[in-house]
Amino acid sequence: MSGIALSRLAQERKAWRKDHPFGFVAVPTKNPDGTMNLMNWECAIPGKKGTPWEGGLFKLRMLFKDDYPSSPPKCKFEPPLFHPNVYPSGTVCLSILEEDKDWRPAITIKQILLGIQELLNEPNIQDPAQAEAYTIYCQNRVEYEKRVRAQAKKFAPS
């Protein structure tokens, strides 16, 4: 494992614990031996107030490669969400998460999670990743928002 990646992720964890947006979660997972795995984080993004996503808490896994922060983490909703920019596998399609697009090593975990929260309610229809959600979003916004509200209710924190 890269010392650069681990040191950056340790800084990220410290900064997150000191200050993070209300309702968001970002925690490194534990290895079988109980030690912390900084390369694999369990996160959760709350649906934004005043949107059909409100009330939901959407679980996301963030996986970092050894060359982080040169390369972005892979962000994957578990379980996958109904959304035009979420692949059926759950992987998020967002330009700041793509090395050859808008990724920059200075982007923080907090910025990534806030960017994904923004994307939930403002899909990028130029870059669809899920045919069904994309089609319904474009053709029947009322039905799309109904499905999103049902999903938010399903993923409401207990």
Rank of each mutant, 00 (worst) to 15 (best):
A5Y: 13
R149Y: 08
L60F: 15
K153E: 14
E99G: 14
P32C: 09
A106I: 07
I96R: 09
Y68P: 03
D102M: 12
N124P: 03
R13H: 04
T108D: 10
G3I: 10
A5W: 10
S71Y: 11
K154Y: 09
Y68W: 06
K74M: 15
Q139A: 10
G55C: 12
E118A: 09
A26I: 07
M1L: 09
E143D: 11
L38Q: 00
A156H: 13
C75I: 15
W53L: 00
T29Q: 07
G23N: 11
I109T: 06
P157I: 05
P123E: 00
G47A: 04
E78V: 15
A152Q: 04
C75L: 15
R17E: 03
F22L: 04
W103F: 11
P69I: 01
N85C: 04
M1D: 08
G90K: 02
M1A: 07
V148F: 00
K14I: 09
N121S: 12
M36W: 00
D100T: 13
F82M: 05
A26N: 04
G90S: 03
R17T: 01
F24P: 00
T29A: 10
R8M: 11
P69R: 01
D19G: 07
L114M: 13
E54R: 06
E145F: 09
T135N: 07
P123N: 01
P80D: 12
V142G: 13
D100E: 08
F155R: 04
P21Y: 04
A5E: 11
L9Y: 12
E118M: 10
V148L: 06
F64T: 04
P21S: 07
F24A: 03
Q130T: 08
I125V: 11
L120T: 07
N40C: 05
F22I: 01
V27C: 14
K154C: 00
R149G: 06
R13L: 05
S71G: 15
R13E: 03
P52H: 14
S70L: 14
V142L: 12
Y144N: 02
A44S: 08
K101W: 08
Q139R: 13
Y87W: 06
D127V: 00
G90F: 02
C75S: 12
R61Y: 09
S158Q: 12
L9R: 01
A106M: 00
A156T: 11
E99Q: 14
K101M: 08
L38Y: 13
Q126S: 13
K101F: 11
P105K: 01
Q111F: 15
L94E: 06
V148E: 02
P88T: 15
P46R: 07
I112V: 14
W16D: 00
I136A: 11
E143H: 10
V92E: 00
N85K: 03
S2Q: 15
K18L: 04
Q130V: 05
P72V: 05
E122P: 02
I112S: 07
Q117P: 08
M39Q: 03
R13F: 02
T35A: 07
K110D: 07
S7F: 03
T51C: 13
P84N: 13
N140A: 15
R104Q: 04
F77S: 01
Q117D: 07
M39R: 08
F77C: 03
A26C: 08
Q117I: 07
R17P: 03
L120F: 06
E98S: 15
E42K: 12
A10E: 01
D19L: 03
I109A: 12
R17W: 03
L81D: 01
F77T: 06
V27N: 08
R8S: 02
Q11I: 14
Q151L: 07
A106S: 14
V86Q: 06
W103R: 00
T35D: 02
W41I: 04
G34S: 06
K101L: 13
L9I: 06
K48D: 03
E98Q: 06
